[in-house]
């Protein structure tokens, strides 16, 4: 019996000693390897995409059914990124790649449309640092480093950069180069009717709207102090009026961007009717926070908007009455 106990003791001791073998999980080399591969794949994908990448950014406002497109071309030699979005055409800024927790970190490291969207708030862009989660052919999956507040957990929305294969909407959007603000004055100061069709089949009652130029004082303020119009020089501030009835109108802040119209809810500024509640009314009415311009005609503007998959879900015309 005693011999049996001794043998059991020896067997247990033998197993314990064997267990001192190093665990692969504790081997930091695997983190280096995984992170290094992600980084190599990221840079290779960035470099190889001749036409760049498309990012769709959704609003946190559930009334908004569309997502705003950003086309980005990365130059991995110069660390420059060229962005085309409603905020401007081919606007250059810089990016940097460093390390996050076991994965690369992509930082839009100088002011850009991304940092501008982050600054205004209300979208999935809750930071301008992004953890690179996964890199697969034609897709880069990334996540905002922070959710936006000190006491929120790390990591915001998961976003996808999709290789730009020049879908039809990119051609429709970028063919129109007329600057409405400076070259099409006929659209300012007159009642117009917005007629929209939704791919979902939802009905839309034609809405009476008007575009008005901001007063000289307001214009100077927006160009000197309001983030969207300070940082995105191609964006012009306007009043995007909406008349629910002929006698009840609101005059929220709207923007004429690159081949686009858009409005944003900004809670950091007052009055609310101009910066937050007013734009929110427009977003609820149109179910979008932007329109891309397909064509500017003599008396009308053809517009459309996309969902997060790049599908055209709103098509419409804004016509002079």
């Amino acid at each position: 019996m005693k011999k049996l106990y001794n043998l059991i003791f020896l067997a247990i001791l033998f197993c314990m000693v064997l267990s001192c073998k190093k665990e692969a999980l504790l081997d930091g080399g695997q983190s280096i390897e995984r992170s290094g591969k992600l980084e190599r794949d990221l840079k290779a994908q960035m470099h190889d995409a001749k036409d760049g990448w498309i990012l769709f950014v959704s609003s946190l406002n559930t009334d908004v059914k569309t997502a705003t497109p950003f086309i980005m071309k990365f130059d991995t030699t110069q660390n420059k990124v060229s962005m085309t979005s409603i905020y401007g055409n081919a606007v250059e800024s810089y990016f940097k790649i460093s390390a996050s927790t076991g994965m690369p970190l992509l930082s839009f490291s100088t002011g850009s449309a991304i940092s501008s969207v982050y600054e205004i708030g209300g979208t999935e862009i809750t930071d301008y640092f992004f953890k690179i989660v996964r890199v697969v052919p034609d897709t880069i999956v990334m996540q905002s480093y922070r959710q936006g507040g000190t006491y929120q957990k790390e990591g915001g929305a998961i976003l996808k950069l999709i290789r730009n294969t020049k879908p039809a909407w990119t051609r429709d959007w970028q063919q129109e180069t007329t600057k409405i603000y400076t070259q099409a004055p006929q659209f300012f100061g007159f009642y117009m009717t917005a007629n929209l069709r939704y791919a979902s089949g939802e009905a839309f009652t034609p809405a009476t709207i008007a575009f008005l130029k901001q007063s000289a004082g307001n214009y100077a303020f927006f160009k000197a102090s309001y983030p969207t119009t300070v940082n995105n020089k191609q964006v012009e501030p306007i009043t995007w009026a909406y008349y629910a009835t002929p006698s009840t109108g609101i005059g929220p802040l709207g923007m004429l961007g690159y081949n686009s119209l858009f409005c944003e809810v900004s809670n950091g500024y007052s009055p609310a009717s101009l910066f937050s509640t007013g734009p929110a009314t427009l977003q609820k009415l149109f179910k979008t926070n932007y329109f891309l311009i397909r064509k500017v005609n003599a008396t009308s503007i053809d517009v459309f908007a996309l969902d997060k998959d790049g599908k055209e879900i709103i098509t419409g015309t804004i016509s002079l009455n």
Binding site: G28, S31, S35, K80, K96, S98
Partner: peptide
């Protein structure tokens, strides 16, 4: 395991 301070500069 990972150099968190390294930044890939162009």
């Amino acid at each position: 395991p990972i150099d968190y301070t390294a930044i890939k500069t162009g």
